[in-house]
Amino acid sequence: MGEDMDKEQFLRNIQEEDNNSLRTGAANRILQLLQRQRYNNNEDSVKRWIWELCQNAKDVCNDSGKVKIRIDLDESNKRVIFRHNGRAFSLANVMSLINQSSSKDRDDETERTSGKFGTGFLTTHLLSEIVNISVI
């Protein structure tokens, strides 16, 4: 009985270390991407964030197959507010952003998504290190 408990604990420890390793790797990839964006900042990358947000909105269009986008500049609070009427991020989308993988099915020929690697949203950090996401 004691030996079985040791095996179970050992397997839990392996799973925990594996999860920690995956999270650390994802965090390091995100930091590298953000640093690359900041230090390779050129005229095109300054504009890239808006293109990426529009592309993300297009990829989650609503049931009509279309998406409406609205961008507001709140100068008094120094904020850019980007809105669209597409679907909200799913849990899979959020986890893909965190893990730097794509939640988009590449085998589905009917799916017309633009993004591939789940990195486009990170370009919003060219504007600010803090990005708030909300569902209205």
Results as ranks from 00 to 15, higher is better:
Met1Gly: 13
Asp4Lys: 11
Asp4Asn: 12
Met5Asp: 08
Asp6His: 06
Lys7Thr: 02
Phe10Pro: 03
Leu11Asn: 06
Asn13His: 10
Asn19Asp: 13
Asn20Phe: 05
Asn20Glu: 12
Asn20Ala: 14
Leu22Lys: 15
Arg23Trp: 14
Thr24Lys: 15
Gly25Arg: 10
Ala26Ser: 11
Ala26Met: 10
Ala27Glu: 10
Arg29Leu: 15
Leu33Asn: 05
Leu33Val: 01
Asn40Ser: 13
Glu43His: 11
Glu43Gly: 06
Glu43Met: 14
Ser45Gly: 12
Ile50Glu: 12
Ile50Ala: 08
Cys54Ile: 13
Asn56His: 03
Asn56Val: 04
Asp59Leu: 09
Val60Asp: 07
Cys61Leu: 09
Gly65Val: 07
Ile71Gln: 08
Ile71Ala: 08
Leu73Met: 10
Glu75Phe: 06
Arg79Pro: 00
Val80Asn: 01
Gly86Phe: 06
Gly86Trp: 03
Arg87Gln: 00
Ala88Thr: 07
Phe89Arg: 05
Ser90Tyr: 03
Leu91Met: 05
Val94Arg: 02
Ile98Ala: 07
Arg106Asn: 01
Asp107Gly: 02
Glu109Ile: 10
Arg112Ser: 09
Thr124Arg: 01
His125Cys: 03
Glu129Ile: 04
Val131Ile: 00
Ile133Arg: 08
Ser134His: 13
Ser134Glu: 14
Val135Gln: 04
